[in-house]
Design a protein around this nucleic acid. Sequence first.
DNA 1: CCCAATTCATTTGCATACGAACAGACTGGC
DNA 2: GCCAGTCTGTTCGTATGCAAATGAATTGGG
Lengths: 139, 139
Amino acid sequence: MAKHTDYALDDQVGYILRRVTQRHLAIFAEAIPEITTTQFAVLARLSQMGPLSQNHLGRETSMDAATVKGVVDRLTKLGLTATRPDPEDRRRLTVSLTDEGARLFARRKETGLAVSTATLAPLDPAEQATFLALLSRLT
Amino acid sequence: MAKHTDYALDDQVGYILRRVTQRHLAIFAEAIPEITTTQFAVLARLSQMGPLSQNHLGRETSMDAATVKGVVDRLTKLGLTATRPDPEDRRRLTVSLTDEGARLFARRKETGLAVSTATLAPLDPAEQATFLALLSRLT
DNA sequence: CCCAATTCATTTGCATACGAACAGACTGGC
DNA sequence: GCCAGTCTGTTCGTATGCAAATGAATTGGG
């Protein structure tokens, strides 16, 4: 009988999640060195939904207000996004893709899909579907 | 026919991983406010394996040398770990748990297991087993 | 036994992340 | 039509996380 409880770090979901995320980020950085995963998510969302206020963009990409500010600042410095004040609501800052940002995303979105494929490659197609369905429910 | 490829951000494994990790970190921070997940991982590993060199500890907890240094520095400042030079190899810094660190981990490891349980709670037991098996293969 | 290659720890720079606190702008309910 | 509550963006502090560069120590092969 075990004295109390054994805590097996290697079996904890949080620890495995961290390791899987590390592998995914490495695959992404290799495939798309120009920008980061979070920056790519912003380009994807703006490409899909059009211009958004900075806070709304944060909600749509699962980043808090402080985080999305830094991401947008860096994308703007790279010339991939632009910001302008909203005339309707002077609190708001509207974020949009530049032509260069739209072109970069169009050019790289196939690669982005390949990154997802590579991340899931250790599983066969049926396992991938099962995994994604279960993972989504843990959101 | 789609013009080219649709990139559905919400279906990308990296994006879902980030969201699941956010939820897990929030559950952990609520349950164990004293320290972070990475700090807890260090305590767990030292508790399991005994004193380790800082680099070895990093490998055993999936952190690179620069990251583990910061984590150990903060744990040491909290009085939960201690460091001493290795007389055998003057490059090495041996990291060990203090009594207080060992007590904190002993007191909190049940809670740590409860955090894993809560993270996986949306799945039934069979699904949890399937999920963990598939997740582990993506490391 | 000696030096080239490796290992270890550190530092710097950059990029997420989040909580808390803040000021300015807006809105709904009375 | 006013003000209490809310929303938006910003800043600060803290904590991962990795790449790259550095200096010191160790080791292995000839």
